[in-house]
């Protein structure tokens, strides 16, 4: 057991098949503490599958995934204790209030000082005034903010985000961008999957282009340059197909 890992995520030669479709083809990737990594690719490129394998929601057919030094196969509960996951779906219960939702997840994570942590989390995402309203009356933006509070209530080391901007209005998207920057500045790690770069992203230090379950490119640099490179990448792939 490695208690002080150099990499927070270590993926080695991971393969994932769905029937006869190879969703991940020998992916090898290392993510270090403080990284803000964006996985880019078209629909079906394998971004969500890779995140779900990292969270041990899917079992890889072969290869090895370690999170904070723990093998996802052998220590799934320890791995999940260190992960937060924000997806397009909020994973919230519509008939529970915001506070009840957070209390429920706090109990699943066996947290201490639950009331204090819930209050802090609600304040963090600006939902104190709506804490005792049922989620079914929340807008998409409010649900996404509560989903972030849910995913980070247990103070995870790594946050996995799957298309977190989809369906958000500009204001909510801007809030989310600011929030992600502050999360990474606290030496925590974000791995985010997205298929479009219309939303401006700051603080990202690694861009990984995926195509057909393979890592095609990894780049670092300014957002505007990456966006141009990504558009070019998509044009090339489109050209190959036609």
């Amino acid at each position: 057991m490695n208690l002080r890992p150099k990499a927070v995520v270590q993926i080695e030669k991971v393969e994932k098949w769905f029937g006869r479709t190879n969703a991940l083809e020998g992916i090898t990737l290392t993510v270090r503490p403080g990284d803000f990594m964006v996985l880019l690719g078209r629909n079906g490129a394998g971004k969500s599958t890779l995140l779900r394998v990292m969270a041990r929601m899917l079992k890889p057919n072969s290869g090895k995934v370690e999170i904070c030094g723990f093998d996802v196969r052998h220590d799934p509960e320890r791995v999940r204790q260190r992960l937060g996951f924000v997806a397009h779906s909020s994973y919230l219960y519509r008939h529970l209030t915001a506070r009840e939702n957070l209390r429920f997840f706090a109990r699943l994570y066996n947290l201490e000082n639950i009331d204090q942590k819930i209050q802090e989390a609600l304040g963090w995402v600006g939902l104190e005034q709506s804490a005792d309203r049922q989620v079914l009356g929340f807008s998409r933006g409010m649900q996404q903010r509560l989903a972030i509070a849910r995913a980070t209530l247990h103070r995870p080391e790594i946050l996995l985000m799957d298309e977190p901007f989809s369906g958000l209005d500009l204001e909510a998207a801007e809030l989310l961008t600011q929030w992600m920057k502050s999360f990474v500045s606290a030496a925590k790690t974000i791995v985010m999957a997205t298929h479009d770069l219309e939303q401006g992203l700051s603080g990202v230090n690694r861009w990984v282009f995926l195509e057909k379950g393979r890592i095609e490119k990894e780049l670092t640099g300014d957002f505007q340059i990456i966006r141009e490179r990504y558009k070019q990448f998509l044009r090339e792939r489109k050209g190959e197909l036609s």
């Binding site: 929601m57 999940r80 996951f85 994973y91 919230l92 219960y93 699943l108 994570y109």
Partner: peptide, 18 residues
């Protein structure tokens, strides 16, 4: 049925729960 709304079952599966 309640676990299908908002994919809540995935949220349960992500928690460090046996």
């Amino acid at each position: 049925a309640t676990e299908r709304e908002n994919d809540s079952l995935q949220g349960l599966m992500l928690a460090p729960v046996d």
